[in-house]
Amino acid sequence: MVNPTTAGKFIVIEGLEGAGKSSAIALVREFLTQLNDAEPVCTREPGGTPTAEKIRALVKNVSDDDPLCDEAECLLMYAARAQLVANVIKPALANGQWVLGDRHNLSSLAYQGGGRGLLPLVQAVSRATLGDFAPDLTLYLDIPPQLGLTRAADRGALDRIEQQAIDFFERARETYLTLANADENIEIIDASQPMAKVHQDILAVLKSRLTA
């Protein structure tokens, strides 16, 4: 292919439930492996470290007799993210490795910020935990919530967050789009298209943004 840069880069895949993140991640992973002749470090959020995975379990499967309040959900997401960034992502980048993330900070801005209506809290905690750290490139897979949730339901049982009301996801999508349109490092991909076309669009962005 082309000669990759020597410095590691952080690439993130974002999107609502059912947007096709899993297949997109597999595609991007293969592209980056060919580009750099080395597999990227792959992460997921929340999760990615032993401590962060325990937090993921708390967020995904909360007992009905102790429901997770919105503010606690937000803080737990950032606790897991801080662990992942400090112990996996930044060390990998410093070592010249590329990192491919399944979600990152944009998810919290959209879900907890837009969906839960906690944007001031999310922004404050983001600044406190991440500072100016951000992905080099984010691919946001945009899909209407109803279509995405239908796809997600076809995969099997929905988790706690996937079971939220449709207006929660409408607010999250609106926030995603607002933030994506304001950030040159976020590319919007129409994920409602057939998968072959979605993958074609993803590859076009990767070639444009990551190769000389």
Rank of each mutant, 00 (worst) to 15 (best):
S23F: 12
C42M: 13
A24I: 00
E17D: 07
D70P: 05
K21I: 04
K21D: 00
N3Q: 11
K60L: 05
A80T: 00
V62E: 03
V2C: 12
L35Y: 07
P67E: 01
E39P: 12
A52N: 03
T43E: 01
G20E: 05
G8E: 07
F31L: 09
Q83G: 11
A7N: 11
A79W: 03
P40C: 10
G18A: 10
T5W: 09
V62I: 14
N3R: 13
T5Q: 14
D66I: 13
P67G: 04
M1Y: 13
D66G: 08
L27D: 14
V2T: 12
P67H: 04
D64I: 01
D66L: 15
G47S: 01
T43M: 02
L76V: 11
I25K: 08
M1C: 12
G15K: 01
A26Y: 11
G15I: 10
L16S: 13
N36G: 06
S23W: 05
L68F: 07
G48V: 05
L75W: 06
R29L: 14
P46Y: 02
R81K: 00
A26R: 11
K60F: 01
V59Q: 03
Q34R: 14
G18H: 08
A19H: 01
F31H: 06
M77H: 11
E30A: 13
T6P: 08
Q83C: 06
Y78W: 13
D70F: 07
M1Q: 09
S22P: 01
K54R: 14
Y78M: 12
L27N: 07
S22V: 02
A7V: 03
K9L: 12
A24P: 01
P46D: 08
P40S: 03
T6N: 15
D64Y: 06
C42D: 10
S63T: 02
L75Q: 04
N61P: 04
G47Y: 00
